[in-house]
Amino acid sequence: MSGPNTNYDPVQVTPLKAEQVEQMVSEALAAIESASTTAELKQARLDHNGDRSPIALANREIGALPPQARKEAGARVGKARGQINQAIAAKEKVLAAAELEAQLAAETVDMTLPVRQHPVGALHPVTALMDKMADVFLSMGWEVVEGPEAEAEWYNFDALNLHPEHPARALQDTLWIDPVEKGALLRTATSPVQIRTLLERDLPVYVVSPGKVFRADEYDATHLPVFHQIEGLCVDKGISMAHLKGTLDHFARAMFGDDIRTRMRPHYFPFTEPSAEVDVECFVCRGESVGNPSRPCRTCRSEGWIEWGGCGVVNPRVLAACGIDTEVYSGFAFGMGVDRSVMTRNSAPDLRDFVEGDIRFSRSLVGGAR
């Protein structure tokens, strides 16, 4: 049995000599130390500890050695690679910390510098005023109700005592939905919401219904085909015109000030009887412009009063159409336009500004409720 081979060519294993391995380590450590960025350190790792680096090539030579030399050479190369890996890991921490510090310094925000805030939106003045109006009635214990904008003819006209020949049903006043024979339309008032409430709820009823309405009106400075109304309805036992006057007086004081006055002028509406137009005292001149040419008032045109809306005792025919016993129950109703209220309160010259979507308009009216 032959013993282990002790003969090998020293030329082929020169890279495994101690001085050669030490030279590789010195060059690797120098390259690692000189790296000033993580990118440079990565290149140093490839050059001095990668698969094609001198130390990796030397490691491959170990397999050509006889057993008694393989152990010594393997320990020498392994120790060298360990030194290189440790140096790389240490340098990586130093560079990472330095780069993070530089990044933080570059991204530092000076909190003392003035900033330009991103512009925010604004509540539309009509929406703001409707919310304020609804809040007045909520504080009185009333409810806010809503209904569909596309409505049936019966709810919009018939149940409200508007006979088939009434001019409001004509094409020049109402926006009908094709085909017209189907009897569908875009509601001309929020009154259909009141009819639905009477049909769906138990009595007594105290509700207010703000919302969007539609008319076949011209689009100009004083008219819009789409505008907003708020209507109120009370149906209970023993309700009279006096309750309506007290409610509207409270509403007016909440909207225009505690010393505001109201007045009623006889009028006609098919759905109320008796009916009235309600006016409020001009909240700008308080009537002092009447007969006083030295102090004219643009808001009331020196008349001292501003038309506010319509009102009246609910017509018994309307209650009967909803199945309510008119011998037991009575009620009152009122309604006013919101857009014109905003226009009057803020001296806005053109209703078209309300629908142009210019945020500067909404901001200029300070939420629409001064």
Score class of each variant (00 low, 15 high):
1 M>Y: 08
8 Y>F: 15
11 V>D: 07
12 Q>V: 14
15 P>R: 11
17 K>S: 05
17 K>N: 02
20 Q>V: 13
20 Q>G: 10
25 V>N: 03
26 S>T: 08
27 E>A: 07
27 E>S: 01
30 A>D: 06
34 S>R: 10
38 T>S: 10
39 A>W: 04
45 R>Y: 12
45 R>W: 09
45 R>S: 12
47 D>Y: 05
48 H>T: 08
52 R>F: 13
55 I>A: 05
56 A>G: 05
59 N>R: 08
60 R>W: 09
61 E>G: 08
64 A>P: 04
65 L>M: 01
66 P>E: 09
70 R>F: 05
70 R>D: 01
71 K>G: 00
72 E>Y: 06
73 A>E: 01
75 A>K: 13
78 G>S: 05
78 G>E: 02
80 A>F: 06
81 R>W: 02
81 R>V: 04
88 I>H: 09
96 A>Q: 07
96 A>V: 08
103 Q>S: 00
106 A>P: 09
106 A>L: 13
107 E>N: 14
118 H>V: 00
121 G>M: 00
130 M>L: 12
131 D>G: 05
132 K>H: 14
134 A>K: 12
135 D>S: 09
138 L>K: 15
139 S>G: 15
146 E>P: 01
149 E>S: 12
151 E>K: 00
152 A>W: 10
153 E>I: 10
156 N>E: 03
157 F>R: 00
158 D>M: 12
158 D>P: 10
161 N>S: 08
163 H>F: 11
164 P>F: 05
164 P>M: 01
168 A>C: 10
168 A>W: 03
170 A>Y: 03
175 L>C: 13
176 W>T: 08
176 W>E: 07
178 D>Q: 06
178 D>S: 07
180 V>T: 13
181 E>N: 05
182 K>N: 07
184 A>D: 09
184 A>H: 13
187 R>T: 09
187 R>V: 09
187 R>S: 06
189 A>W: 01
193 V>E: 04
206 Y>H: 07
206 Y>C: 06
207 V>M: 13
213 V>W: 04
215 R>A: 02
216 A>Q: 07
217 D>G: 02
217 D>H: 01
219 Y>W: 15
221 A>D: 04
223 H>G: 02
223 H>L: 05
223 H>C: 00
233 L>C: 14
234 C>P: 00
237 K>W: 11
238 G>S: 15
243 H>Y: 10
244 L>G: 01
247 T>K: 02
252 A>G: 00
254 A>K: 14
263 R>D: 05
266 P>D: 04
267 H>K: 12
267 H>W: 12
275 S>F: 03
277 E>V: 09
279 D>F: 05
285 C>H: 10
285 C>K: 07
289 S>Q: 03
289 S>W: 01
296 P>C: 06
297 C>L: 14
299 T>R: 13
309 G>D: 05
312 G>W: 01
313 V>R: 01
313 V>L: 03
316 P>Y: 11
318 V>Y: 00
319 L>C: 01
320 A>Q: 05
321 A>G: 00
321 A>M: 02
324 I>N: 02
325 D>H: 14
327 E>L: 09
327 E>C: 04
328 V>M: 06
329 Y>Q: 10
332 F>V: 09
333 A>R: 04
334 F>Q: 10
340 R>C: 08
341 S>F: 15
343 M>L: 15
347 S>W: 13
351 L>Y: 04
352 R>A: 08
353 D>N: 10
353 D>H: 12
356 E>T: 07
356 E>P: 04
356 E>L: 06
359 I>R: 08
360 R>P: 00
360 R>W: 00
361 F>D: 02
364 S>W: 09
